[in-house]
Design a protein around this nucleic acid. Structure first.
Length: 1190
RNA sequence: GCCCGGAUGGCGGAAUCGGUAGACGCGCUGGUCUCAAACACCAGUGGAUUAACCUCCAUGCCGGUUCGACUCCGGCUCCGGGUACCA
């Protein structure tokens, strides 16, 4: 049998789609199994070969579990908000909604080609208002909640208010968690609380809310008017544009994840996650117990509070170091040091946190100030140093150089004392390094002398508390999560700022004060507004500040004349000539209006030139004629659907684009086709497929029934149609309609920052359970059925980000009773990253004497100014080749897109032709060319200030300029090293891709992508098909059954332990062996097809039907394994002498160890190695090995 | 810097609990088929030594535990990921 993968794959993908093979119901008798892939972000680069690795693995598990009788939930969707789309929007002016929609369509197309068993009816997109309504809803709940440390759970803020009203707040009974730099809320009485102004109450409660407006350190770039990620800062300037960046404290919406620190830490123990991930989370949470200690500043009332995990070493303190941003720096610095301190602060301020931590060079600056040691009363100098981070602990450390390596380096550098206070091993040299271990006895430490470290810590805290200079404290490295972004493309934060008359008149707010409030739940979602540019405003406010009428009136303050919504009224910005995330609904009236017709024609014309006004008129006439001659089936159906009988307006024989739909509900955008028998014809099938594709593109859903179905089970057909229409009615709501549905607008300013990328992905696993629910984020009943994820698959790069946030939100939703699980995923597996091979050219840039203008695409600078149609080239970039080893001036490595590079005779290179193609696609490379003799001679002259000799020149010229260096890196658009899986599908088929990606190696391991060896998996499929040439119904031989059952056993075991590469090997071995046995028995092949179906579903479906099965192989049952074929009655014992394998000997499996020893020693082979001597000892491990010790 | 991983033939990898290191696939070599090529099929393939058998060496490096170590322990080297606003 020949293996025509193209035909087979197309055929079965279509079959699955039409039969909704992978649709999953909530509930039923089967046990549930929820297998989820981490949310993909639909990047513009499309899916690369790394993405499917995890999806294939999870798909195999999903399919396998189905065969094992589980009800499997295996959904997919998109984490669609994010920076890249916004960046692209800034550069091109295209709306992120449009590009995101395109990217999603592209992803879907790519995903469909690989044959995944996702239930697409459950797809979610985080940028869809119907989805982010609930993200915002969760935010509102977080805002309205506080964390009660006594009950260890989130409670309504009302219970806290009640507490304040009855007993006030004494400052210590509740641990106040503020995150970032901790500060305490001052105690107040119940009476005082009642007298607080509204603003004061709001401020106090802000210290307790789980979503709160606080302050946080950020990388602020004034020129770009935005906050940058550490990633986007290089050497103190923005990566994009090279503008200065500084650390700045800014008001920020934050999430009090620190409240959950203990639970996030403790609950890790019950999870079936890899130890490394759990360890990473533990380290990230970074719970450390220690003490706060106050140091009084000499000749001042000011105090520095430090946090230390080693209060026992207090007598070893020789200096105190503050973070350069510390608020006291200005106040305590002596006039003498002002200049130096300011200079140092400015340098440190311009570095990102990561750069500062990675800095190996010790740096710091004395402030001229001293603190008084609380126990010895000695003066201790105060320094600032960039190794102290403002965001951790209190932003100040007491330095004990003898027992902390960073303090030690600092003390060495500044020549400060290093007194030892803990005993160390004798050979420890305190002039070379500190002794950091928490072992030893305290010395030189007054009342702590003689105690071991552990006891000394306790004793020191006691003493510190007794003297009132500090207290025992638990510190977490975990910081509260910044939740506001100065960006456009994210969920709007549903907060408005209520204005109230000022209670105290301060110079800044003379008449009014702002109180942040959350919107009423009934007004959600707050739709992302249209803006004219996706950039900050001129005054540096986030992009949403550009939205017209970005205001809100809460329900209780509304009057009838209040405008309905921010998107309402004459000021509304309407997006034209672009497609919305959800399609615009057409009006439901009889016949189409002129403008609706225009819309359809216009939409169709974008795809197909055949659609025009004339064609439309003809089509309408044809359709009208058709209505008079309906087929019997159509007639029957029409009687059931007409006149709004099923609650939806249906038309029959209605023209859409250049097709005529049998039945259509325009409002829900659903087309119902009733197919005659000729629809099984191949040409007709192809036409139908094309037609469905076009209609899908236009936003219509197409459902099909055969004449037979309609006539025989009309009730069933009608109810299926009704179901589809009911669910699509919701989906057809557009941006605008949702905006109207929410009565709002007017009185108060809305928040202008948006939520971060992780917001939508922190709860999506719940939405998949109940994706259409418009009453709540998930119904309790459904959530209780699916509980949590049984297998969660994703990259290890999410170890501390996403996985902590999703655990946090899950715990919160559990606390407020929305769900009954405490953790999102019971089992987690991290797939390794498929890395890309980056191509790097060595380039020397030279300024051109005159500016060259090259026609090309417009360029946009980082602040959004466009230079139209041409590129101004001020410099030339000469590619000098990897082998040109002379150090050259201003040489830099440049990434070249991998698709233009070639491999040959041991190295990667780019040809002239490749380079010119590259320039066409990527205008940033227009200034690149290969260096020639003249260039080399010029470079030489520049570098050595001497003429190049003819000999050297010809040597250098002979070197291949085209050679590139390769480097293994994360596959990413940024490194231009992305490989597309579709190319593989076209060449070898999806099943080969699936097998190959699994065959590459263990799932968890990182590996660079290479197609070497893909032919092996492809050949395997071909060989497998060949076994089915003539299938016989004869009873199989024992040997054949042995092959079968061993294969089944190994494959089942290996799937369970997620070892898919060995599964593929096992199948290969099976095929090789069956080939040798010339086996063509159905009884062997049929079970094998089932076992292979999770891996190569298209091929398996095809062979399954070839074997005469009518239903899909996905409905089969995984074959039972017969143990009797797994046992061997002889064992081939390897015999070792002194641990070295010498020979093997075949013995009965049930032979006793003593007999095995006897047999082995008696063997002729053994005599040779024994050389007549008696062995010292013989170790026999039954059924494993024999080791003779001489 | 800190945290988490990884390293086995020419290449991807196997060895699941400390028990025959190199399964399976690629590549390469030789052969069969063919006018020839492709496909397919058969055989070989870690290194050194050897005519062959034998023997020795080999799982990044150094050391340890053990009858026996790719696997466990201690110390390094190099590579990858994360490092809080990339997702």
């Amino acid at each position: 049998m020949e293996y025509n993968f193209n035909d087979i794959e197309r055929k079965w993908q279509k079959y699955w789609k039409e039969n909704q093979t992978y649709r999953t119901e909530n509930g039923g008798d089967k046990p549930k199994y929820y297998v989820l892939d981490m949310f993909p972000y639909p990047s513009g680069a499309g899916l690369h070969v790394g993405h499917p690795l995890g999806y294939i693995a999870s798909d195999i598990v999903a399919r396998y579990k189905r065969l094992k009788g589980y009800n499997v939930l295996h959904p997919m969707g998109y984490d669609a908000f994010g920076l890249p789309a916004e960046q692209y929007a800034i550069q091109t002016g295209r709306h992120p909604a449009d590009t995101t929609k395109e990217n999603i369509a592209r992803y879907r197309e790519q995903l469909d080609k690989i044959g995944f068993s996702f239930d697409w009816s459950r797809e979610v997109q985080t940028c869809d208002p119907k989805y982010y309504k609930w993200t915002q809803w969760i935010f509102v709940q977080l805002f309205k909640s506080w964390y009660n440390c006594k009950t260890q759970k989130a409670e309504s803020i009302d219970t806290l208010v009640a507490l304040f009203e009855s007993e006030g707040f004494n400052g210590t009974t509740h641990r106040v968690l503020t995150g970032d730099i901790e500060h305490d809320v001052k105690p107040f009485t119940a009476a005082a609380w009642k007298n607080f102004s509204e603003k004061e109450k709001s401020d106090v409660l802000m210290n307790f809310r789980l979503a709160y407006l606080g302050e946080a350190w950020v990388n602020w770039c004034p020129a770009l008017g935005t906050v940058l990620a550490n990633d986007e800062v290089k050497d103190g300037v923005s990566e994009r544009g090279g503008y200065p960046v500084e650390r700045k404290r800014m008001p920020q919406w934050s999430m009090r994840i620190t409240a959950y620190a203990d639970r996030l830490l403790n609950d890790l123990n019950g999870l079936d996650w890899s130890d490394s991930i759990k360890e990473a989370q533990r380290n990230w949470i970074g719970k450390s117990e220690g003490s706060s200690i106050e140091f009084r500043i000499a000749d001042s009332e000011l105090r520095i509070e430090v946090f230390t995990t080693r209060p026992d070493t207090i007598f070893g303190v020789t200096f105190v170091t503050l973070a350069p941003e510390h608020e006291l720096v200005d106040k305590i610095t002596n006039a003498e040091y002002k200049e130096a301190v300011t200079a140092y602060v400015n340098v440190a301020k311009n570095k990102s946190e990561r750069e500062r931590q990675a800095e190996k060079k010790v740096s710091g600056q004395f402030t001229g100030a001293y603190v008084i040691h609380p126990f010895t009363n000695e003066k201790v100098p105060v320094y600032i140093g960039e190794y102290v981070l403002a965001g951790y602990g209190t932003g100040a450390v007491m330095a004990v150089p003898a027992h902390d390596s960073r303090d030690f380096a600092f003390a060495k550098h500044f020549n400060l004392g290093i007194p030892q206070v803990v005993t160390a091993p004798e050979d420890h040299d305190f002039s070379k390094e500190s002794y950091d271990a928490k072992e030893g006895k305290l010395i030189n430490s007054d009342f702590l002398n003689g105690l071991n470290v552990k006891d000394a810590v306790r004793r020191a805290i006691d003493e510190i508390e007794k003297r009132g200079i500090g207290q025992g404290k638990v510190n977490f490295r975990l910081r509260d999560a910044a939740f506001g972004r100065q960006r456009y493309w994210g969920e709007p934060i549903p907060v408005y700022y209520k204005t109230v008359p000022s209670s105290t008149s301060t110079p800044l707010s003379l008449t009014t004060e702002l109180i942040p409030e959350v919107m009423d739940e009934s007004d959600l979602p707050l739709i992302l507004p249209e803006v004219d540019k996706f950039l900050p405003t001129e005054s540096g406010e986030p992009p949403l500040a550009r939205a017209k009428n970005w205001t809100y009136t809460p329900p209780n303050e509304r009057t009838n004349s209040t405008p309905a919504s921010p998107q309402d009224g004459g000021e509304e910005l309407k997006r034209t000539n672009s497609t919305h995330a959800s399609p615009q609904p057409l009006s439901g009236g009889e016949g189409l209006s002129e403008s609706e017709e225009d819309l359809i024609v216009e939409e169709a014309a974008r795809h197909y030139k055949t659609a025009n006004k004339d064609g439309w008129a003809k089509l309408k006439n044809m359709a009208r004629e058709n209505r008079t001659k309906l087929t019997p089936a159509e007639e029957v159906l029409w009687e059931r659907l007409r006149n709004n009988k099923i609650g939806h307006k249906i038309r029959r024989q209605h023209p859409i684009d250049f097709f005529i739909a049998d039945f259509i509900c325009i409002r829900a955008r659903v087309i119902i086709e009733v197919d005659g028998s000729y629809h099984s014809d191949a040409d007709q099938l192809a036409y139908d497929e094309h037609r469905t594709f076009v209609l899908n593109e236009m936003g219509f859903k197409v459902i099909r029934f055969t004449n037979e179905e309609v006539l025989k089970s009309t009730d069933d057909v009608v109810s299926r149609i009704t179901n589809v229409l009911d669910s699509e009615r919701e989906a057809a709501l557009s941006f605008g309609e949702l905006g109207e549905a929410r009565a709002a607008g007017g009185k108060y300013q809305l928040e202008t920052t948006t939520m971060p990328g992780w917001a939508g992905s922190s709860w999506y696993f719940l939405r998949y359970m109940d994706p259409q629910n418009d009453k709540e984020l998930v119904s309790k009943e459904v959530a209780d059925y699916w509980k949590n994820i049984d297998l969660y698959l994703g990259g290890a790069e999410h170890a501390t980000g996403h996985l902590l946030y999703v655990r946090f939100w899950t715990k919160f939703l559990y606390d407020i009773g929305k769900i009954s699980v405490n953790e999102p995923a019971q089992k987690l597996v991290n797939q390794g990253m498929i890395q890309g091979m980056s191509m790097i050219a060595r380039v020397v840039s030279r300024k051109l004497p005159t500016i060259r203008i090259i026609p090309g695409k417009p360029i946009v600078d980082p602040v959004g100014n466009t230079t139209p149609t041409s590129l101004l080239i001020e410099q030339e970039d000469l590619i000098i080749g990897e082998n040109f080893r002379q150090g050259l001036p201003v040489e830099r490595p440049i990434h070249i897109p991998v698709e233009f590079c070639e491999f040959g005779s041991g190295s990667y290179y780019i040809t002239e032709e490749g380079l010119s193609k590259l320039k066409e696609k990527y205008p940033q490379f227009v200034s690149f060319r290969f260096a020639n003799a003249e260039d080399i001679s010029n470079l030489w002259t520049d570098l050595f200030k001497a003429e190049i000799s003819q000999d050297v020149l010809s040597t250098l010229e002979a070197i291949d300029k085209r050679t590139l260096r390769s480097e293994v890196e994360k596959m990413s658009k940024r490194w231009l090293n992305v490989v597309n899986p579709e190319d593989i599908c076209d060449q070898y088929g999806a099943d080969t891709l699936r097998l190959y990606e699994m065959f590459l190696g263990p799932l968890e391991q990182h590996k660079p992508w290479s197609t070497n060896g893909i032919s092996g998996t492809h050949n395997f499929l071909k060989r497998f098909f060949r076994l089915f040439a003539e299938v016989s119904n004869d009873a199989p031989a024992e040997a054949e059954l042995k092959v079968l059952h061993r294969t089944l056993k190994k494959v089942a075991d290996d799937i369970e332990r997620m070892s898919f590469n060995t599964c593929v090997s096992t199948f290969m071995i099976a095929v090789n062996e069956l080939n040798d046995l010339k086996c063509n028995k159905r009884a062997v092949l049929e079970p094998l097809v089932i076992a292979l179906s999770p891996f190569a579903p298209h091929a398996a479906e095809e062979l399954w039907s070839v074997l005469g099965n009518k239903d899909s192989v996905t409905k089969a049952i995984f074959p039972a394994i017969d143990e009797k074929y797994l046992v061997d009655n002889t064992v081939n014992y390897p015999v070792q002498f002194n641990g070295k394998m010498r020979f093997t000997i075949a013995l009965a499996a049930d032979m006793k160890p003593a007999d095995v020893e006897k047999e082995v020693l008696a063997s002729a082979e053994a005599q040779k190695y024994l050389e007549g001597k008696a062995p010292k000892k013989v170790i026999v491990v039954p059924k494993k090995i024999v080791n003779v010790v001489m």
